[in-house]
Structures are given as C-alpha cells and as structure tokens.
C-alpha cells in the first residue's frame, strides 16, 4: 500500500498493484442492495413462520430437532389435507356404489369408469400376485381375462369367490386307476380339448370311473342348469374347451392331475388350487376387504374380458 494516493478523487480503496492497478470502492447497485435486504428479511420471516432453524440438544426437552414455526405447518398435515380433499371428491361415487349392485354399477358408464380406476389399485394389491397384473394369470393360477370360469363368471359368483375364497378338490387316482386307464383318460381329455368328439371307450371309462360326478355328463364342468339359468358347478374344469387349468396343458398335465389330484392331503405332488377368502365370513384373511371393495373388484374382474 502506497503512502501517497496517486489517483485522488477516484474513490479507490488505496490498494495498488503494479503502479496503476487499484481496487475501486464502488457500492453495488441500489436495487441489488434492496434485493439483498429483502432476501434477508424473507429468510428471517420464513424461519419464524415455518419449521427451519435447528435446535441444539441442550436447548430443548426432546434433545434437539428444529423450530416448529408459528404457523404450525408440517408436510404430513399438508398431505392429510390433500387426502381429505381426495376423499371428498370420491365420496359422491362411493355413496352411490354402497347402495348399488355390481350389475347396476356396470350399467352406469361414469360410475364404471370410477370403479375400474379404483379397483385397479385393489386388484394390484390383493389379486395380481396370483392372477397377474391384468388378470392374465401367473403360471398355475386361473386366467381372469378369458371366458372360462370354474365357479361361474356372473357378478354374484365373482363376489362369492372373492368373499369366501375357493378350494379345488380332485381325488388322486394313482392308487385307484391302472397305468393304462390313466393313459387312456389323459388322451381322452387331450382329444376333447383339441375339439374332438372323444372316443367311445374314453367316454365309457370317463363314466365308469365317476369323473362325471364333478366334471358333468358332458365333461364340460356343468352338473346341472337350473330353470332360472343358474349353472351348478363344483369348480371342476371344463374338459371340452381348449383352456387348461394347469400349465402347460396337454397330455402330461392331464396325466399329472389325474394321478395326484388337486389339494389332496398326504399326496406330495398334488395340485395346489386354493384361493383365500377376502371377505368378512371366514378364512385366514378374514375381513381384509370391505363389501364395497369386493363389489368394485367384481366389476373390475367382470370387465377384464370374460364376464358373464
């Protein structure tokens, strides 16, 4: 720093380098200073209104944390308010759904739209693990998007299946039938599935061995049709269509099912076919879904492509 200022009247700080380079002392623009002070005021005010400043451990009973702000704002409160608003929007639909049958819901396009959107979430939470995200059925589980129903595809039957669950049953025939008989019955079901008529010997064996008791006289899984059109089944597969209940389908699959049955205790290789109950009545998942939720799911499943 020079003792003598060679550039007087220039508003420099008195700092010089290389004789002619010097540091000037020009203040920042006024608007810039105003903006700075407004920002600082904003910072302080914000800190008073909203949670902001850290609190040191010895300054509070909870041992730290932060100032809560005089407005008492928290993100969880904001979230809850948002959820209340959502519930308000939903309420008009929900009250309608509560007083309607699934069929009535399906008749109202606007309500159906709401129900499908709402049930999609439920389906993802409770059903998709086995039946696939779009009802396409994971391997070994029933496809919900087709028109083949073990227990019926009417709204009432779907509600029943979801509410009470389902448990398939088929005797293991490994000790009942001879190897030749198993072979013959397996070939018989494959021929039916391929659209064939089935051999006379096959039908004879099918009747003799009591398969009709569950699969019906026509092997289509229907035991009887009541005068009001209700179809009576026990959940046995329709053997005459091209859809196979157990993957991959065909001779080996049929043979396996005949030999070891479905849900047979003590038979190691038996087929698993259990759907838990989601409704209020019984089962391990008792009360997991409200009746209205089941109603929505019924509409959703019915609309997947094969509802009757």
């Amino acid at each position: 720093m020079a003792d003598h200022n060679p550039f007087p009247g220039e508003n420099n700080t008195g700092h010089f380098w290389d004789d002619n380079i010097r540091e000037l002392n020009n203040p920042p623009p006024k608007w810039w200073m105003i903006a700075l002070w407004v920002s600082i005021a904003w910072f302080v005010l914000y800190g008073i209104l909203y949670p902001m400043y850290p609190v040191l451990p010895w300054q509070s009973q909870e041992g730290g944390g932060f100032t809560k702000g005089v407005l008492g704002w928290t993100s969880i409160k904001e979230f809850e308010q948002g959820m209340e608003q959502v519930a308000e929007v939903r309420a008009q639909y929900e009250t309608q759904i509560a007083s309607m049958t699934p069929e009535q819901i399906l008749d109202d396009p606007g309500l159906t739209q709401y129900t499908l959107a709402s049930a999609k979430v439920l389906f993802g939470d409770y059903c998709a693990a086995c039946h696939g995200s779009g009802g396409q059925g994971n391997p070994g589980y029933p496809v919900l998007a087709d028109d083949d129903w073990l227990y019926g595809g009417s709204m009432a039957k779907i509600v029943e299946s979801v509410t009470n669950g389902r448990k398939g049953a088929m005797t293991a025939h490994q000790n009942i039938l001879s190897e030749a008989e198993v072979d013959q019955l397996s070939q018989f079901t494959v021929s039916l599935a391929d659209g064939g008529e089935g051999s006379e010997a096959g039908w004879k064996l099918f009747n003799e061995k009591g398969c009709t008791a569950c699969h019906g006289q026509q092997a289509n899984g229907i035991l009887a049709e009541l005068p009001d059109g209700t179809i009576v089944t026990v959940g046995a597969a329709n053997l005459t269509d091209s859809i196979w209940r157990f993957e991959p389908g065909g001779y080996e699959s049929a043979k396996h099912t005949i030999l070891y049955g479905v849900n047979q205790p003590g038979v190691e290789q038996t087929r698993d076919a259990v759907m838990p109950a989601f409704g209020d009545s019984a089962g391990s998942l008792e009360g997991k879904l409200e009746p209205d939720q089941i109603k929505k799911l019924a509409v959703y499943v019915h609309s997947l492509g094969g509802g009757q």
Partner: peptide, 18 residues
Amino acid sequence: HERAPLFVQLSDGSVQNK
C-alpha cells in the same frame, strides 16, 4: 392396446384382444 395380457385364448378356440 392392453399389454397384460397381450391376448387371451377363449374357450371356443378364438383369440381375444382388449
């Protein structure tokens, strides 16, 4: 076009898309 499932085989042997 529905992607899950891409198509469904129906009991009468036809194929359905959603």
